[in-house]
């Protein structure tokens, strides 16, 4: 990326967090896709700049197909949900929600002056973890972000990504997962 601004990384995490919310017309706008294309291009992520095969078109059934895919991948599905986006599923012995790794995440948030909004919220959802990274960077705590990535995020995200990629051929989510991976993986 040739014009890095100080807020760029934080904004990137926010962008990625939003991207893993339920797909809705309200935010899946042309500017969103322009930005996504822009990021991809800047990173030269894929020699094929049109790698996003899903053509956004409010008139077509593209949005609905994406919603169905999101539901199947992350919410409930028949025959079975592909990849619940929570760290406990991948790190804790029973693969249930709110395992020890989720407790760790919540404590980490609290240690750094944050907490999830609702007392019943499950702290280790992918969206929350990406938003938390954005918050840390906005507060100039890049080293803490690195610690969070190192001690937690990188332990589960690759397993999650693998489950999505082996269970789906959706270009939108595979692109986003590649982006998340790119912005969170350990520096070479």
């Amino acid at each position: 990326m040739n014009c890095p601004q100080s807020e760029t990384p934080a904004s990137l995490y926010r962008f990625l967090a939003q991207s893993f919310r339920y797909p809705e017309q309200a935010w899946l706008t042309e500017p969103y896709f322009d930005l996504l294309g822009n990021i991809k291009q800047n990173l030269a992520l894929n020699s094929d700049a049109t790698g996003l095969h899903w053509n956004y078109n409010a008139e077509s059934d593209g949005l609905e197909l994406l919603q169905i895919e999101y539901t199947r991948l992350f919410i409930n599905a028949a025959p079975a949900v592909i990849a619940p986006p929570y760290s406990s599923i991948y790190l804790d012995h029973e693969g249930n929600l709110y395992g020890q790794s989720a407790v760790w995440v919540k404590q980490f948030y609290q240690l750094h002056g944050f907490d999830v909004e609702g007392e019943g919220d499950i702290p280790d959802h992918l969206v929350l973890e990406l938003e938390f990274l954005a918050l840390l960077i906005e507060e100039q705590q890049g080293d803490k972000a690195e610690q969070f990535l190192n001690e937690h995020f990188r332990r589960w995200f690759p397993l999650f990504r693998e489950r999505v990629l082996s269970g789906s051929t959706n270009q939108f989510y595979s692109t986003l997962l590649t982006l998340v991976d790119f912005f969170t993986r350990e520096e070479p």
Binding site: P4, P9, I137, G142, L149, F183, E187, P188
Partner: peptide, 13 residues
Amino acid sequence: MAFQMTRRSFLQA
């Protein structure tokens, strides 16, 4: 900062 592209570029050099 971990994710400044300049550093990334630097490391890639």
